[in-house]
Each structure stands twice: as structure tokens, then as C-alpha cells.
Nucleic acid binder design. Structure first.
Lengths: 242, 242
DNA sequence: CGTTCCCTTGAGTAGTTTCAATACTTGTGG
DNA sequence: CCACAAGTATTGAAACTACTCAAGGGAACG
């Protein structure tokens, strides 16, 4: 369960793993779950990257990105029909858990039920930050902000380097993430590169001075609930509740 | 519970109401819950309007609006510390439910627990639509879209008229909602008025042709999970599950 | 070694913000 | 009832930001 693993007892981690009844390799661009479809299982991302996407009037938009260890559609369990699509970014490995098993487990394990709920609330908190940043930042800053977010999330699951990270993201993906156009993203990446803030080359992110990038993007990681004033340790550590 | 009441049995509705241990009248602009604060209760909006707000680098932003019947911070139950502020828009009446009571109730009433979870997932779905619309619509369309959303939500709880609705919203609020400026909002409202799409005067919304407004805003209400291809009746009606 | 996908650049246009200034409304006290 | 104050709404002009259309360049993969 990636970053949430620390909040699980050894026994609980075993319970979660036993829920995964099937794994699957998916190729780049594969739509794992399409808006409006009824599903009887939820998905966990084991390797690679997954996107939440929505079709706009003309272009597709990316609403969220996920890293290994994330539950991708725990909310499909309560919603049954999703409002958006789940799409693979690059090749990925996913695991499936049946809703029937989840339902039984959640009645027997209130602490785990609450953790699953928490993971969907975390998605909402990230959405809110995206709304805020779309409202107040220019496209170059939004790109920088997204890079900071991705970097921070990869850090949490040990997939980042000290000077950056790798991903299958293209410039057109950054356009769909920031609500801009590939051409404008291209120019903004050039500016970021020339300002020595960050280099983005075919998904490879390289940055010498993370502090400057964070400052430029006005990035405050607390909305990821990993550390800082909103951190979850109090209420989610195994010793603290129910 | 407003729009979710239809998904409750008579007994369950009673259970929910018994959770409200205290009500309070709050004045315009009052911050009911501030980011980072630990709380031991959750809030239901009984009368008036409530906003989710976040402080940006210079200006405040509005991330969501709530109408009577909405649970405002059910997610505070699982998150304990919120990432945003809860602010009254105009005078409002709210009720409080203690987290301890909620926890006990949710263990005894899995169906209700799931409904509460659903209400937080609904917020996330609305966030996603806002992100999408901020990415693809111009400010005039975003204003129209927000008006459509508000109108639809008020419809669900019987607080709208056939030709519009009233609210304490100011033009500057629309600016904070759409991520724009009061001055630009003012011009866009003039354009909307001159195009006979919708009139907005000090919170009073008047529209003769709702269909045209919906089309202009590219508004598709299904993300509100009230009707249409994502509607919740299947999985949330009292007869259907657990 | 060529095809395909992705990235890059230029020029013109559209949308939005900012600054500065002016009016309208609403409520309050004289 | 009028005058004033505070908040809210409106307008103009200039600067900035981002988009569109059109074309060219480069890297990766077979």
C-alpha cells in the first residue's frame, strides 16, 4: 500500500495483500476503467503510472496522477460508476480486489476501512490544491508545481533521486495536466530550463536546486498529508485509533 | 440530509438526526473551521450557504460551495485536520455531530457509513469537474457553469425557482470561484446579460432560457450524481445494498 | 535509413489582468 | 427624509499571458 503501509500492522498488511486476487500488465494508454462503467473490483497500482482523465469538449484532460502503491479507484467501491476514466501512462502493473471481499473486510476491520476512506480523501485534497493553483499560478509555475508534487509523491515511495526523477510524461501530458497547450508548455519548459530551475526532457526531470523550484512553484507539500501541519501520523498510526 | 434523504430509511433518518447534538447560527464570513485545526465534530448545513476556501499567496480562493442539507466536513472525521477553511457565505444555520458518536454509529450502520463516504466522494467528483472546466472554459463560460451547478444543487433540495435562484454571492465571490478577478467577472457578467443568457444582480440569478445557458456553459449535471448515467439510485437506494 | 512520434520556433490573435478612476446601492444617523 | 459612508459594481486603456495556425527539426525505433 505504498505510503500508507506505515499505518498498517503486519497482520493488516497481510489482509490487504490477500484481497488482491489478480494482477495484470497493461500497456501505455490503456483505459482500465471508463466513465460510467459499473465495476465489481477496485485497482491498486503496483508498478508504473496511472492517470485520472476526463474527456473535455475537444481535448482530454488529466485530473490526477498516481504512483506505485496508490489505490486508484477505491471510490469506485462506493460510487460504483466513476465520473472519469482511469488510464495507464506508460506500461504498468496493477492488482485487482473484488468489491465483495472489500465489503466484508471493511465490516470486520474498521481501522482498514478508515484508511481506505482516508486514501480517497487524500485524492480530494490534491484536487483542491490543483484548483487553487490553476487559479493563482501562471502556466510555467503550474508546471513547476506539478513537478514538485510528482517528485514529493515519488519520494514517499522511494522512487525519486536526489536530483530528480524519471517518468513517461510527454510535454503534451503536461499540457493536459496544466490545462494548457503543448506549444505553450514547450515554451515554458524552455524558460524553466534557461532560468536553471528545472530540466524536463522526455519525462526525465533534473533539478539542481530543489529549494528554488519549490519557491518558484509556491509548493507546500502539506496537502499530501505526508508531513507538516496536516500530517496524518496522529490519527492514522496503528496505535492511535479504533 | 437534503438530497441524500431519499437513500435513507425512516429509521436511519432518525439515527442521523439524533447525531446532531448542537445547532448554531453563524454570521456572514465566519470561519467555522480553519485549516490545520483538530476537530472532534462534523458539521451539517441546515440553512444558508457554506464555502470551502483556501488562502492563496495573495488572494483567497473558493473551492466549493454547499447548500442546505450538505454534510460539510464529514472528511474531517477521517482527516482530523483539514487542508482548507470552512467559511459561511451570508448568515447560516449549522448543526454539529460529535466524532465519537459518528464512529460508533458507523460501526453499527454500515449502510449509513457508506452514504457518508459517498458524500465525501461526491465532493471529489465536483472538484474534478471544476479542474476540467478551469482548463477548458473561458471565464464567461466558467461563470455560467458555476451558475448552472448552483442552480442544479438548489433544485435538488427544493430551493430554486423555475427562472433562477437567490444567493448572497457577490461578483468578487464569482471571481474567487472562477479563479479570475472582480473586474473581469464584471465585464463577463455584462456580456452574459447582453447575450440574454443570464442576469446576475447582487446574488439574484435570473434566466429565461435555462437550456441556452446550459449549452453555453457545456454543463452536464451527471457529475452531481443526481440523475443521468452516473446516478446513484442503483447502489444507494435502501433496498439495493448491505 | 526512413518513418513516426515528439519537440521546437515564429508570427499574429484572443483572452485576461492591472491600474486608475467613476458610479451605483444599501444602510445608518442626523 | 436627506446626507453620508461603506461596500459593491462599472468603465477605459495599456500591458501581459496564453492560444492558434503554420512550418520545421530532432530523436528513437524498426
Amino acid at each position: 500500500m505504498g505510503r500508507l503501509r506505515q499505518a498498517l500492522t503486519h497482520r493488516e498488511a497481510g489482509v490487504v495483500e490477500s484481497l488482491i486476487t489478480r494482477t495484470e500488465h497493461v500497456e501505455d494508454g490503456r483505459v482500465l476503467l471508463r466513465r460510467g462503467t459499473t465495476v465489481e473490483h477496485s485497482t491498486i497500482l503496483i508498478e508504473g503510472y496511472i492517470l485520472r482523465t476526463m474527456q473535455g469538449s475537444d481535448k482530454r484532460h488529466i485530473l490526477a496522477t498516481h504512483v506505485p502503491g496508490d489505490f486508484i479507484d477505491m471510490h469506485a467501491f462506493a460510487l460504483k460508476r466513476l465520473d472519469h476514466d482511469i488510464t495507464a501512462l506508460g506500461p504498468a502493473l496493477v492488482g485487482y480486489a473484488r468489491h465483495e471481499d472489500l465489503r466484508i473486510m471493511m465490516e470486520q476491520e474498521p481501522h482498514l476501512a478508515r484508511l481506505f476512506w482516508f486514501s480517497t480523501l487524500l485524492d480530494a485534497a490534491i484536487h483542491r490544491t490543483w484548483i487553487l493553483k490553476m487559479g493563482e499560478l501562471r502556466v510555467d509555475q503550474r508546471i513547476a508545481h506539478f513537478i514538485c508534487e510528482m517528485w514529493a509523491k515519488l519520494d514517499m515511495v522511494g522512487l525519486a533521486r536526489a536530483d530528480g526523477f524519471n517518468s513517461p510524461l510527454r510535454q503534451s501530458d503536461l499540457a493536459e495536466i496544466t490545462g494548457s497547450t503543448p506549444i505553450h508548455v514547450n515554451r515554458m519548459l524552455r524558460d524553466l530550463r534557461e532560468a536553471a530551475l528545472v530540466e524536463f526532457r522526455r519525462g526525465r526531470v533534473h533539478c539542481r536546486d530543489r529549494g528554488r523550484l519549490v519557491q518558484f512553484a509556491r509548493f507546500d507539500p502539506s496537502y499530501l498529508y505526508g508531513a507538516g501541519d496536516l500530517a496524518m501520523h496522529d490519527q492514522l498510526s496503528v496505535t492511535a485509533i479504533s
